[in-house]
Design a protein around this nucleic acid. Sequence first.
DNA 1: CCCGGCTTGTGAATCCGTGCACAAGGGACC
DNA 2: GGTCCCTTGTGCACGGATTCACAAGCCGGG
Lengths: 220, 220
Amino acid sequence: MARLPVYLQLLSEQFDAGVSNISSEEIAELAAVNAAKVRKDLSYLGSYGTRGVGYEVEFLIFQIKRELGLTHDWHVVIVGAGNLGQALAGYGGFGERGFPVGGIVDVADDKVGSLIGGVRVRHIDDLQHIVQSQNVAIGVIATPGPAAQDAADALVAAGVTSILNFAPTIISAPHGISIRKVDLAVELQILSYHEQRRANARQSTALKAVPGASGRGASA
Amino acid sequence: MARLPVYLQLLSEQFDAGVSNISSEEIAELAAVNAAKVRKDLSYLGSYGTRGVGYEVEFLIFQIKRELGLTHDWHVVIVGAGNLGQALAGYGGFGERGFPVGGIVDVADDKVGSLIGGVRVRHIDDLQHIVQSQNVAIGVIATPGPAAQDAADALVAAGVTSILNFAPTIISAPHGISIRKVDLAVELQILSYHEQRRANARQSTALKAVPGASGRGASA
DNA sequence: CCCGGCTTGTGAATCCGTGCACAAGGGACC
DNA sequence: GGTCCCTTGTGCACGGATTCACAAGCCGGG
C-alpha cells in the first residue's frame, strides 16, 4: 500500500513529540484519510492494535519499517548530472531518510570528475561496477527526456531492479523491474487544470450575475 | 484527469517528430495504457477524433492545453530557499514548461538577497506583494517538514489558490485550495517495499529449492 | 468478579475506475 | 455512388478500493 510511508512519517513525528499511544481515529486525522481505511491498512501488517486503547506508536513504526524494508539503508545511484541530477544529489533528504547516494554517473566527459554533494561524478560505463560493488538496487533517472530510456536500459543491465524516473518520458523495462515516475511538470499542469476550472467557474457566475449583458448580445 | 499531461507530453514529442495523425492505439502504446482508456479520456474533451483515421496531433495538443489551462504561463512562487528550494529554482524545467519562477522567499534573513536561478530571494513578509504584483496562483513549498503548514498558511493568506508541497508533511488548507504532495522519500520507500518483497520471494524459493535443509532443522 | 465504555478488526454494501466488445461513422478505393 | 475497412465513441460488466456498521475484545472501575 502506498499509504504506509505516510503513516510512517506522521507516526515518527508523533513519537518524537512524545506520543506513545495513538488511535486509528487520530492517525486518520493526521493523514487526512478515513479511519476505517487506516485500520484496514494496519491490519494488513497483522493485528498490532489493542482494542479499547489503540496502537503503540513505537511498535507500529517498527512494523511498518519492517514491511517497507527500511530496516537497513538502500543505496541509490543517480543517472544524469545535469541540473536536476545535481539538485537531487545535493539535496540531503535522500541520505537522511535511509537512501544514501551511492554514486552519480553521466555520459558527458566534462561532467565526470566533479564533486556533487560529496560524491564524485563517474562515467556511465562504470555503472555496473558501482552497482555491484555497492550493492545498489535503486536507480534514479535525472536525464533529459530523450535519454531516459537509454539510462533505464543501462540501469537494468547493471543489475538495478527499481527505478525512480524524473524524466518526462515513459520508460519501459523487463518484467520484474519496479518503476515509479515523478514528473514535476505534470504536477504543475494538474494544478493549472484546477486553476483553469476555477477561472471558468468565476466567469460563469459572473455571466449569471449579469444575465442581461450576455443575453443581449449573444444568446438571441 | 491526471493522464492528460502525459498525453500532452507524448503528443508534443510526436508532433516535433513530424507525426500529424495518430490513433488511440498508438497513443496507448506510447503512454503504456489501454487504448479504450485513451479514447474515453479524449472523448471527455469532446469528439475531436475522426473515425477510421484517428486524431490530428496538433489540434489535439491545442485542445488538451486549453483544457489544462496551459494557453498562458503560470508564475509560481517558491517558499523555502534551502537545499530543495534552491534546487527547484535552479532547475530550468519549470520555466521551459510554462511555469516560470516568479519569486523565492524564505524566513531566514541570511538567505534573503542571494540570487538563485536568476531570481533574488526575498523575505516571506513580501509574499503577498510578490503574489499580487505578479499575479501568482501557484505556490511551491520547499521548506523542512515542520515549517510546511506555516508556509501553506502564508501562501493562502497571500492569495495563492494552488499548492505543490514537497515537504514530508500533510498540510491543510481552506476548502477551494488545490493541494498536491510530492514526497521523494515516499517514492523511494515504495520502491524499497518492492525490493523487500523481491528479497522475501528469493528467500522463500531458496527454502523451497532445498526443502530438506529447512525441514530437518526447523519444521519438526 | 462483573460491567460499561472505548477501540479494533472485519463482513457487507457501495462506488469508481478499468477494460471489453460492438455499433456508429468516416474515408478510400473501385 | 456503393462498398469495405478502419477507427472512434460508448454501453455494460467486472474488480478492486473505499466506506459503513457492528460484533469482538480489552481495560479500568466499582
